[in-house]
Nucleic acid binder design. Sequence first.
RNA 1: GCCGGGAUGGCGGAAUUGGUAGACGCGCGACACUUAAAAUGUCGUGAGCUCGUAUGGGCGCGUGUGGGUUCGAUUCCCACUCCCGGCACCA
Length: 946
Amino acid sequence: MEQYDHKKIEKKWQRFWQEKHTFEAGEDQKKEKNYILIEFPYPSGDGLHVGHVRSWTALDIVARKRRAEGKNVLYPIGWDAFGLPTENYAIKTGKDPRIVTKENTDTFRRQIQSLGISFDWSREINTSDPDYYRWTQWIFLQLYRQGLAYKAKTYINWCPKDKIGLANEEVIDGACERCGTPVEKREKEQWMMAITKYAQRLYDDLDTVDYIPQAKLQQRNWIGPSQGAEIRFPIKDSDRSIAVFTTRPDTLYGATYVVLAPELLLAAQLAEQAENRDELKEYIVATQQVSEMERTAEGKEKTGIEMKGIRAINPVTKKEIPIFVANYVLGGYGTGAVMGVPAHDQRDYLFAKRFHLPIQTVLEPLITKKEGEDALQSSLPLVERRSVVAVIKHWSEDKYLGVRWKRTNWQAFVIGGIEAGEDAAAAGKREIREETGYRNATPVRSLGGTVHAQFYQTLKQENRFAHFEPMLFQLENAERDPITPEEQALHDLVWLSPEEMDAFITHPDMQIIWDRVKGNECYTGEGILIHSGTFDGLESEVAKEKITASVDGVPRTVFRLRDWIFSRQRYWGEPIPMIQCPSCGWVPVPESELPVLLPEVDRYEPTDSGESPLAAITSWVETTCPSCKGPAKRETDVMPNWAGSSWYYLRYCDPKNTKQFASEDTLRYWTPVDWYNGGMEHTTLHLLYSRFWHKALYDLKLVPTSEPYMKRTSHGLILAAGGEKMSKSKGNVVNPDDIVERYGADALRLYEMFLGPFDQPVAWNEDSIIGVRRFLERVWKLAKQPTAQEPAPETEQLLAHTIAKITSDIESLKCNTAVSQLMIMLKTFEQYAPTEEQLQIFLQLLAPFAPHIAEEVWQGKGNTSLLEELPWPTYNPEILVSKEVTIAVQINGKVRSTISAPLDAPEQEVIERARSDNKVQTWLARGTETRVMYVPGRVVNFILDL
RNA sequence: GCCGGGAUGGCGGAAUUGGUAGACGCGCGACACUUAAAAUGUCGUGAGCUCGUAUGGGCGCGUGUGGGUUCGAUUCCCACUCCCGGCACCA
């Protein structure tokens, strides 16, 4: 018998598909379209990564299935070719990046074609091709005309090694994302993209698309809207005021100081008038030398300086409060000034502690019934084990009272259980008095409380409590009733030092509570206002509005998102098509002159001044102003590599168009992208940038939809064997070529699909690739066996189930279970030979996963049509309904036996059948039956008193 | 620190979303074929205790940890630990 020779078969079909243009998207716009997109690769010198194979194979399976379902599928591929690694390579070797790119893309193309992925190669694009970047430049000009591209002098993140400005988004842990060099701050004129103008829409429109939840969430967090208010704090003896942005106007009565960001103009101006003016100026200068990342790094000590002699006035309390300049406030966010509310903000709290500023509590926590119940639940074990159930701080000394309740009567166990109609603080005081004999104890803050199980049950049944508030009580100024002998008998009351307390507490849950007490955090949640004048008793949500209105504050939404720095002082990117004229200012290059070609240079390094190498080519820089025809200079910065990838999916629709980036006609047909898959690492930057460009183009009526991608999924990383990232330096990179050579493309595809859940990271483990290879060889063998005339009863239902499972698994990218289903089907066919028709269905289901072998086997059967051109198999759903089902019989929830019964058997009959089972009878004899549960078709459960 | 995701046999992982935990594959063991090995095929394989000469049966245990809800929890709730990804004082 002829052996399964993957090399021969795979080469044959790959050539066939290429010659016949099998996977090129059709032009027939009457047919229903389906646009499937993967992130086009950066053609690095390392060649194809097995991670590429994972993502592209998964979507290839979807594409092939949808073609079989009769859709006109567009599944394109191209190259995201501009970028730093290529440029750095060019700098090192002196080789033209164009040539490097050509070599790399040739390698990638060959590697991809050996995988049998059904890309439409006729639409291949390359972002570094002038025919492509002509349109990238063109789109830039449209955005410029909309006022979305502008030049601004900003403090930028400056990488001293790459000599390049980085977007904030490109800085990782204070270091350059690419080279790891610590980032410095430097002032620079840069082209900016006003993405913040679209912040609200980028946020809101996430509701209209089907992204995996994590991706939506990550985008939302990145955009990060905060609703709050701008409130003015007047400066004493001055007509000026400080505008602060706060999300917590409800805590305004607790604002005991104001802080300005060092880079704020106002800070510099006020410093001039301050008594300690030199000290302040020095601090302001020093702070700005440090990069923002470093300045705001975790664990970095908060520094700040008071502006002596200048006071602000809290607009509600009218009290004079100090003004600080401090590094923990950022100039670029909100108004660049904040009010300090140490009682209810963690950073403010630490700052106030450090500078000995007053801390004024203005909120009491409000615990909902739900939270109360949860707190009760988690504290039950404490009670039952008679452990420490409350920690009470001594009124003057650094001592804590560990209370170990002895009483078993439930009433004794309530700490802060609030009865309906009772005030939280009052309830706490009552409890503390009853339990410890201390009067006038003041609740300080939430702790986690405790209650007896029986009491909890009673409360739950009677629904008696409004809130449950576990809290810490401060015994300052509290009076102590004498401890009676009865009390002494009821409780162990001991005053302990913190060290003794450490030893005293053994239960892990109590440990957590104790740690919180020691940590002495401030309360940052919402609650009910206190010490807030006429606003006392209001809940935070209501108070925010009312307090804001009372001081003429302005409600405002502030975004975390910042404008996109678009300039790069580098070589290997799209030239920005702008000309600076001494008399006309910035003038766009006329569209007829696009593309502005990237000129060839001798040296690729940025100049020492940080300018692009293009700046050195005088003949290119010197030009005439398109407007006044006078002498002018070209912009020498280039675009970031995000530019070309922000719109590439549009070019695929009409890649050869020389009049437009894509015709209206093709855009209307193909867009939006139906399914876009990519890495989680691109869910913030690339995805957000391209959504932004798309929306801007939509507003210009250049694209027909407001969102580019209807559906977005993400794949998990493929890690090296040890669970580490694959990297050249570690020498643990797996080259797909080797696997294709040894096991074949079909085996590699199946293997990567079988590895594990698609959206989770997996470690490469070559040991198990042999399993899928064996599977393919068994398929090969099966096809050579004689087929049956009549379908075997053992196979009919399973085949229908297999069609159903694979059809739905592909749609949810659960390819691992789809492959396992194919294996189960194969095993059954090895026992009970399939008919010709059954074998055909099996091959059709296999084809998206392992297209070469499926097609070869199909052709080997004497068929002249292509397997993949047959319509996707269907099944009769009725066949899936079993008449007889196995039902588990449980005794007290444990499976003791199984019985068989008709699916539609009435409950009584099934229970009787279960009752008469031998094993069940022995169990039933041992106790008294109190109850029987029946879950139709699944489980009978007898509940016995044993 | 915050946000998101995860933890299941020796290993990768299944589990109809609250109903017989461990599908499928790898590995391992036994057997068959073979002079032998490889390849292939068949069967077995969570771990413990236990009954039986034996085919086989029984019992408690078991999905990161500690609790809770439920007739029943890998699945839901609370608290925690560790791992992966993202973010950085965002007021």
